[in-house]
Amino acid sequence: MNAVVSAEGLARHYEVGGGLFSKPGVVKALSEATFQIEAGKTLAVVGESGCGKSTLARLVTLIEEPTAGSLNIDGIEATPDNWDRLRSHVQIVFQDPYGSLNLRHRIGAILEEPLKINRPDMPAKERQAKAREMLELVGLRPEHFDRFPHMFSGGQRQRIAVARALMLEPKLLVLDEPVSALDLSIQSQVLNLLLDLQERLDLAYLFISHDLSVVRHVADDVAVMYLGRPVEFGTKEQVFSNPRHPYTKALLSATPSTEPNPDKMRIKLEGELPSPLAVPDGCPFAPRCWKAKTKCREQRPELMGEHPAACWYPEG
């Protein structure tokens, strides 16, 4: 199978601060991200706030240039020269449905905008027909076409955002916490819509979330990130039933469960996330890990093997 998107050692560093006398610090927001997504599959990226999930989304959607590493979308190397060509291959849906739609534009104009920019020679009639078709596809009514975003609820707005993202018929959709701003009943509607669309249009999803129960519902593969680095990769079954990295284990143990299970041990992580300005040598998770040994503090473990986990003493 051909991968729709493949990334090799993707990294993004930011320089911060740095006055007249001080050297600027470097925040390594993302390092060594390597992954592939095939058509019709979903890669879920999970991790706590500040672990580089959204930076990854910004790199894959060609908003920012990676500091290092390479990104291939649909077989084309994603360098800034090729960005224009690749725009229609990757689109994004944001977390906050209230901020992601332009309040001054009608729904019709919002949906038509990507076509107007990328297919300037398409006749206006065809463009409108396509926008109306897409509106129907995401489960909205034709009369919504002429309304303004403030007349819609969060769930409806998120549907509009999905429709806009699909206007260019992309092959990869980056979903940056698409449901975490919605309430629970709407979450499942939007998720089911996304799964339905994936099946119909053979889309690849890069699904960014911190909600593990949502990930369990939609993902095929899961990548767990910690402090800008992927620490565990695997299929959904591997990661959820047999987590190898202690961090993954801790994350999973923190998911609320519907079954009362008094025996279940909740792993409580001690300490704070280290500052991304001064990532410790060795395993970045070592300061919070309950089984860290001297080796962990000195050498950084690499991702390796069939179900890779960046840990010297993996579980299971």
């Binding site: 908003i63 689109q91 994004i92 944001f94 901020g99 992601s100 332009n102 990507p114 920019i117 260019l168």
Partner: peptide, 17 residues
């Protein structure tokens, strides 16, 4: 800083637009 501007960028909007 709002997302709708980013999504216009992702859609390929140029500076004047």
């Amino acid at each position: 800083s709002k997302d709708y501007v980013v999504s216009a960028k992702v859609a390929g909007a140029r500076l004047p637009r």
